Simulated assay, not measured.
Amino acid sequence: MIYDIRHVTTYGYESPVSFARCSLRLEPRSGDGQELISHTVDIRPRPADRTVRHDFFGTHTESILIETAHRNLRIDSRSRVSVSRKAPGRTAPSPAWEDVRDLAFEATSLGPSSPIGYVFASPLVPVQRPVSAYASASFPRGCGVFAGAVDLMHRIRTEFKYDPKATVISTPLAEVFEKRRGVCQDFAHVMIAGLRGLGLPAAYVSGYLRTIPPPGKPRLQGADATHAWVSLWCGVEIGWVGFDPTNDILVENDHIVLAVGRDFSDVSPVDGIIVGSRKQKLGVAVDVLLAE
C-alpha cells in the first residue's frame, strides 16, 4: 500500500504572538514494514530557523523558531509512505507472558528498540493497582503473551466507549479508567499501563489510519486525526507487535507509524512555547488516501 498523507495544523490567536519555538514530529518513520518515500512541511509565517534531530526513540524532530509577529500559524505536512506488514493471527502461539516479562528485565541494551525502556511508568502512564488488576484478568498463569494482549485489547474495545467529549489531553489515567470513556490516546494509555503493571514492555505509537476503508469494511475510529495504538514486545523471536485497542485490531497495512515513545508526551506531533496573551484556537485536519 502506498499512501498520500496530509496533516494540517493551524493555530489562531486572539492577540499577536511575537515569538514561537515549536517541535514538530511530523515525518513518518521508515522500518518495520514501512518506508518513507517523500516528506515536506510548509510553515507560515516562515521560520527564522529550522533544525532537525532524531530523539532517543529515533523520531525525526524538527525545531522551528518564528520571530515574526503573527496571529495565525499554519503547519502543512505532506508525506508519501509505502506500507507492507503482516501481523500474526489472533490465535498465534507465543511465549508465556511471565517468560517475556523476565527477559525484558534481563535486557542489557539501552537502545530505542530495547524492551527495558518501556517497562516502567512514564509521565502520562503511571502504574496503578486498579489498572494492573484489570489487565491481569487477561493474563492467567502460563498464558501466551500474544493471546493475553489480544484479550486485553478486545476487552478495552468492548468495555470502554469512544467519546471525544469525555476527555482532554491532560485527563489523568485514573479518571479515564474510572469513566471507561475516551479516545484512542486514552485507550492506548490504559492498555500500556495495564501491561507495564504486569512487567511487560509496551510502547505508545502515534500515527495515521486509512481514511477510506476497503470495500465492505467499516470505517475505523480515529481516522480523521492522528491515531494512537500500542506496541508490545512479545519476546526475542516475535519482537514488537502493534495492537489497536480503539478498534480491536492488530496493526497491519491500515496503520502508518509516525512516532514511538513511552506515552503521548514523547510523540506529540506539534508542541512548543509562544510569547503572547489571551486565547488560542487549534485546528487539525488529516487526510490519508491511497496514492493514485
Score class of each variant (00 low, 15 high):
residue 54 H to T: 01
residue 107 A to P: 14
residue 79 S to Y: 06
residue 224 D to L: 00
residue 161 K to F: 07
residue 185 Q to S: 03
residue 179 K to V: 07
residue 3 Y to R: 00
residue 285 A to P: 04
residue 279 K to N: 05
residue 199 G to H: 05
residue 180 R to M: 01
residue 256 I to A: 11
residue 113 S to W: 09
residue 186 D to C: 03
residue 221 Q to T: 00
residue 14 E to W: 02
residue 125 V to C: 15
residue 251 V to C: 07
residue 110 L to M: 14
residue 226 T to A: 12
residue 113 S to C: 13
residue 212 I to Y: 06
residue 233 W to V: 14
residue 80 R to N: 01
residue 91 T to Y: 05
residue 74 R to D: 05
residue 211 T to K: 10
residue 261 G to N: 04
residue 264 F to Y: 11
residue 72 N to Q: 15
residue 245 P to C: 14
residue 53 R to P: 02
residue 172 P to A: 01
residue 126 P to R: 01
residue 165 K to C: 10
residue 12 G to D: 00
residue 262 R to I: 02
residue 76 D to Y: 12
residue 177 F to G: 15
residue 93 P to I: 07
residue 169 I to N: 13
residue 238 I to A: 04
residue 60 H to R: 13
residue 177 F to S: 06
residue 196 R to M: 08
residue 50 R to F: 06
residue 226 T to E: 11
residue 113 S to D: 15
residue 250 L to T: 02
residue 97 W to M: 14
residue 27 E to G: 00
residue 262 R to E: 00
residue 110 L to H: 08
residue 288 V to Q: 13
residue 81 V to T: 00
residue 292 E to Q: 14
residue 156 I to D: 01
residue 4 D to M: 07
residue 224 D to N: 12
residue 85 R to Q: 11
residue 64 I to W: 05
residue 196 R to P: 11
residue 211 T to R: 12
residue 104 A to G: 11
residue 204 Y to S: 04
residue 267 V to Y: 08
residue 289 L to V: 10
residue 260 V to L: 04
residue 262 R to A: 02
